[in-house]
Amino acid sequence: MTFKEKYKEELSDTRFSENFKGNTVSLLTQAAERKDNVFMTSKRKFIKTVALVAAIIMTLSLSAFAMISFLSSADVATHFGNKELAVLFEKSDFEPETIKGEDYSVTFMGTAQGENICEINGITTNEGRTYAVYAVYRNDGTALDILDGNPIHIIPVSDGQRINTLTSYGMSASCFVKDGILYAMYDYTDLKAFTDIDISLMAFESSVSPSKALTTNEKGEIVFADDYNGFKGEFSLK
């Protein structure tokens, strides 16, 4: 028997509480329901707001797009309880950039990186990280719902590398919806550390895997696949 087999055998014999899984599901379900109730309250408020805004739009004959008011990237960081990151966003002179697709628009709101940006996603890190904030909204003005998840996924890529090279260093995203707009804060590896390559942030529909939405052409460039027909967005990391 090898060490690995013996270690697995002995660790597998460890006895945890019999009802651990059931109790944990129960605990988490209650926590999720409390969280959802908060969202539902926000949703009801949002519906009233939408009705009011629609009336104003009809009156003033303004486009829904013109009426959109975003949170700032610092607001988004603050929402996730990361004051250090909010300060970095506030100091940034980043110019937001919007890409409009058929159904959705995505606004790249800001990016920040550095060491010791403190805790995010439950992970305290001293490693360099890059954070990026995006706003996603429907072009027809209907609200996004957090329960439907983030419809757009945004990953860093670099020509000449494999599609998943930069994401393989680890990434995660946290989302919330306010006034029908979904705000996503992505936590990437320290992208600025890759000084010798140009990095793009490719946005595509999250129902499609990166390997289906993206492909590598004959020049080694990472581009959208010919047979992918969803949202296509490419932001450059400035």
Binding site: L28, A31, A32, K35, F80, N121, G122, I146, G149, N150, H153, I155, T167, S172, A173, S174, C175, A184, S206, S209, P210
Partner: peptide, 9 residues
């Protein structure tokens, strides 16, 4: 995990 609801590949 519940609070953050991260997006996974």
């Amino acid at each position: 995990y519940i609070r953050k609801r991260p997006v996974f590949n």
